[in-house]
Design a protein around this nucleic acid. Sequence first.
DNA 1: TGGACGATCCCCT
DNA 2: GGGGATCGTCCAT
Length: 201
Amino acid sequence: MDAPVRPLPPVFYQRPVLEVAPALLGSLIVRRVDRHLLVGRIVEVEAYREDDPASHSYRRRTERNEVMFGPGGNLYVYFTYGMHFCANVVTGPEDRGEAALLRAVEPLWGIDAMADRRYGKRRLETRRELLDLTAGPARLCEAFGLGRKDNGRSLQGPDMFLAKGQLGATEKVVSATRIGVSEGKEKKWRWYVDGNPWVSR
DNA sequence: TGGACGATCCCCT
DNA sequence: GGGGATCGTCCAT
């Protein structure tokens, strides 16, 4: 029997990010937007913490990073490179600036609607298009329709939440260094499902 | 007030 | 493997 799909509770998020981030692997991301239901499975994440030079919350509390300092269980969405959005799950207690970046998702449901957002067409034509649909933090934001208006959004639903998921018996979690950071290179604060085709290549 | 740069992606070679 | 797109944020003047 399938378990009911319901939001992971706030207490799930209100733990240290180095615990929460790897625990997110296999979780479902559930999104209702423009009358479409979109579902994916998280397969790659990174942790960012207040004492970490690579984190937006390093040094000062500012207007941009304010959401990271809120209680765990909200979405932190930021704009970068002049054209992309990236989505994070805020973790830890209030006033602790930490979050887990969603880097890759395996699309499960609503793929035609995701394709429409990503490529302007509702039918995928190549395997490459399927793999590029949600592989990467900005790609998954575009596919799931996440943007500026979603910054600070609660993950208790109904239009956006994460739900308990499963890792397959043969699926192995691997930790590695983070992508695209110039400081804090040595920290192995990226986790992914080994061999999953949506993980960054 | 301005300049440098970024938790990226895409297309070209 | 490399570079361009493109603009909000931050910090140094």
